[in-house]
């Protein structure tokens, strides 16, 4: 009887260990593998937190990136405390589903764990020459810069920008810039850069005709929709 119990116990331990190993051995994809993966398939990636777009209702939306490319993590369940601990540079392993919403490729229904590693903060890639070209999408969700673009009137009112919430000013800011005859609509995403940030104030101070340099995350909404984090007047 004792032998039987010992055997049963050993088998249980083996099974549990196998489960744990299986859980841990989800293959971490390279960025190229991630790009090649079909939509709505499960993906596991490792990347570094670059910026936190929002936390609400125990879910966070986060820009992550490594040396090879970027990953947008959408509405990942996380507590406020855990969210606060995810400072830029933190490496995380994320498992979820590769999804697409209005052209934005993102990881949804995600789970994460922190991975011990030296922090990494990406440098902005200059994509000015890629504006309007198909290759721009290769940098989707990366920290990028756009230089020497001209501020255009946002709408028929002639204003250089528009508030999503013109009364409370507690929402996104929209503005348009042009380069080589093409116009692009960018924004300051309020939950990424609120009204007290330099970039929010810089957009509020824009004039039509200003030539500016921008840095931000290359979000996608029916086309490139840079979420600006830094704005300076071009020299």
């Amino acid at each position: 009887m004792k032998k039987f119990l010992a055997f049963a116990l050993a088998m249980m331990m083996l099974a549990l260990t196998a489960c744990a190993v299986a859980e841990d051995t989800k293959t971490v994809m390279s960025h190229a593998d991630y790009v090649a993966a079909e939509l709505e398939t499960e993906v596991t990636v490792e990347a570094y937190v670059q910026a936190k777009q929002s936390w609400w209702d125990n879910k966070a939306t986060i820009y992550t990136q490594d040396e090879d490319g970027a990953y947008f993590i959408y509405n990942m369940p996380i507590s406020q405390e855990e969210y606060d601990a995810l400072v830029p540079g933190t490496k995380i392993r994320v498992t979820g589903y590769k999804s697409e919403w209005s052209g934005e490729v993102e990881i949804t229904d995600a789970e994460y764990e922190v991975v011990e590693a030296d922090p990494f903060i990406a440098e902005a890639v200059d994509v000015t020459d890629l504006l309007g070209k198909d290759e721009l999408i290769d940098h989707q969700n990366e920290l990028v810069s756009v230089k020497g673009v001209t501020v255009e009137a946002y709408d028929e009112s002639g204003a250089a920008f528009a508030y999503k919430d013109p009364v409370g000013k507690t929402d996104d800011l929209y503005f348009k810039v042009s380069k080589d005859g093409e116009t692009y609509e960018f924004c300051v995403e309020f939950y990424l850069c609120g009204q007290d940030t330099d970039v929010y104030k810089a957009v509020e101070a824009l004039n039509v005709g200003d030539v500016i340099d921008l840095e931000g995350f290359l979000y996608w909404y029916n086309g490139a929709n840079l979420q600006a984090t830094v704005l300076t007047l071009a020299e």
Binding site: W56, D57, K164, D165, P166, V167, G168, T170, D171
Partner: peptide
């Protein structure tokens, strides 16, 4: 004093 939202959930 008005405060505008774009989302009823909020």
């Amino acid at each position: 004093n008005i405060r505008l939202y774009t989302d009823y959930g909020r």
